[in-house]
Amino acid sequence: MMMKAATMRVTRRQALGLGAGATAVVIAGPTVGPAVAKGPTAEDAIKAFTGGTETKTGKVSLSTPEIAENGNTVPVSFDIESPMTADNHVQSVLVVADGNPRPGVATFHFSEMSGEASASTRIRLAKTQNVIAVAKMSDGSFFMDKRLVKVTIGGCGG
């Protein structure tokens, strides 16, 4: 039922001809400042994290709502496939949002005591965009997952 409702909202957007481009025009989120100096992009942030090493898909599963009713509080969680042993574990996970004025969200660091490499948090998204999680494994390899979150802004809602 929930998913159905969610799909319907997108449907209506398409019906009204309000695609992702249109949402950018009606930015109304209180956390979004108009004048921000151009900083590093999400791509730059990922590159800094990986040192340019190729990131593979798989192992990382990121979950986000398909639609966020308000960009101020978007629940995000990830789970990374790993035995989490001394010689085979996830060291850290970078989370970035590619459409925010500043793409960095957080970097999580795990330990041998983590048991599982998973975490949840709540984040701010200024508009519809991708949330990306990149995991650094103990053998120096990198894995990633990406999810598009549609942020409903430009509504009423007092």
């Binding site: 978007v74 969200v105 660091h109 330990s111 599982e116 975490a119």
Partner: peptide, 25 residues
């Protein structure tokens, strides 16, 4: 001993919430 940490940026929501796992020995 450190078990979990997060470097946090302004894109984390007001009233920061973190949930994570720990294997307790």
């Amino acid at each position: 001993k450190p078990v979990f940490s997060a470097d946090v940026r302004p894109a984390v929501s007001a009233n920061p919430y973190f949930q994570f796992k720990v294997k307790v020995p």
